[in-house]
């Protein structure tokens, strides 16, 4: 059995184990039998919205676990595509400005009170923001076709959206509850994520993951350089457009339901590449699996922690030192 296959099986088992753990732990005295019964009732459609255990297990925990796994897979998969696109292991989906574009439009919606119309409003606005940012990036990719220009454009767009979001927050300076709401959303959260949120995220993230996996061979060719890729029948511009679309769908979908979560897209593909090499055919699916299991572990920890911690803060707190450790370890192994 190949190493990549062993990792895929191990990662899949880890995701399943972590998902089961996440379903079993939480506030309230609910034992494993009650959890299983509630899941069973939910699966056959006989779950009751006015039953406390059904509500906790089937309406709060189950969709949350699935949303967390989906978002983890999306961010890590998006990171792997971004790093392949820019041929740079330090690239991150956020460098394309997509998550900040999504965040900006969502924050404007919260500022205008549009989120009061329903739980679907903020995800929809975030998806629109991601889509608009994607449109600008695709326009640039079509005109320039240069990965460096695309990267710099993403950085500029991200900086613009970041400043605009701060500007909205400053304008809302006298509305404290609004500031807190926006801040919580910007820190990333899975609190109260429902089946509706899962429905919003599944289509774009599913399409993004499918597109990313389909790009594996082309990204491998691109890693050899534009000329070699072209000689292999791969158009760098076409790959760029499809890769940007995949990243926008993945990051836009994830940001829409979870807010801004940092470092996962940078660290997870890096770890997978470090252990298994750069081949995108194994890198992309394994990044998604490891991303899902990592975020499930983080979210379960934040749920059982004595103080409420936003998962976005935890991913950054764990991700940044882990990334530094990997960098230093790689440097120390490199021949001088």
């Amino acid at each position: 059995m190949s190493r990549a296959r062993r990792w895929a099986i191990g990662g899949g088992l880890a995701v399943a184990a972590l998902a089961i753990t996440a379903m079993l732990v939480g506030p309230g005295d609910i034992d494993a039998t009650q959890v299983l019964s509630a899941i069973g009732r939910g699966l056959v459609g006989s779950s009751r919205a006015d039953d406390l255990i059904d509500a906790q297990v089937w309406l709060l925990r189950a969709p949350r676990v699935l949303v967390v796994a989906l978002v983890g897979a999306a961010l890590a998969g998006g990171g792997a595509v971004t790093q392949g696109l820019f041929r740079n292991p330090l690239a991150d989906p956020s460098v394309l400005g997509i998550s900040l574009g999504a965040a900006f439009v969502a924050v404007v919606g919260i500022f205008l009170g549009l989120d009061r119309a329903g739980v679907w409003v903020t995800p929809l606005l975030a998806a629109l923001g991601a889509g608009a940012t994607l449109g600008v990036l695709l326009g640039l990719a079509t005109r320039s076709g240069d990965a460096t220009t695309l990267l710099l454009a993403g950085v500029a767009l991200g900086a613009t959206f970041g400043a605009a979001t701060t500007c909205v927050l400053a304008l809302a300076g006298d509305r404290h509850e609004l500031g807190i709401k926006v801040l919580r959303w910007l820190m990333g959260s899975f609190e109260g994520r429902s089946w509706g949120h899962l429905a919003v995220a599944t289509a774009p993230i599913g399409a993004g993951l499918a597109l990313a996996v389909a790009l594996a061979r082309d990204l491998d060719a691109l890693a050899l350089g534009d000329d070699v890729a072209a000689s292999l029948g791969v158009s760098p511009r076409a790959v760029q457009r499809r890769a940007v679309t995949a990243v926008a769908l993945l990051v836009g979908g994830a940001t829409a339901v979870a807010g801004v979560l940092g470092f996962l897209g940078l660290v997870v593909p890096h770890v997978v590449r470090w252990r298994l090499g750069s081949g995108h055919r194994s890198l992309l699916p394994l990044s998604a699996i490891v991303g899902a299991s990592t975020l499930l572990a983080v979210d379960t920890l934040t749920r059982i922690a004595p103080v409420a911690l936003p998962p976005g803060i935890v991913t950054s707190l764990i991700g940044a030192p882990a990334f530094l450790w990997i960098l230093l370890r790689q440097r120390s192994r490199r021949p001088t």
């Binding site: 406390l52 925990r61 103080v307 409420a308």
Partner: peptide
Amino acid sequence: HRTIGLESLVAWDPEYIVIS
């Protein structure tokens, strides 16, 4: 004032919840 999860609020099962 402290932040708690929605699941904790549901598990507490209070008779009244005040929101703004």
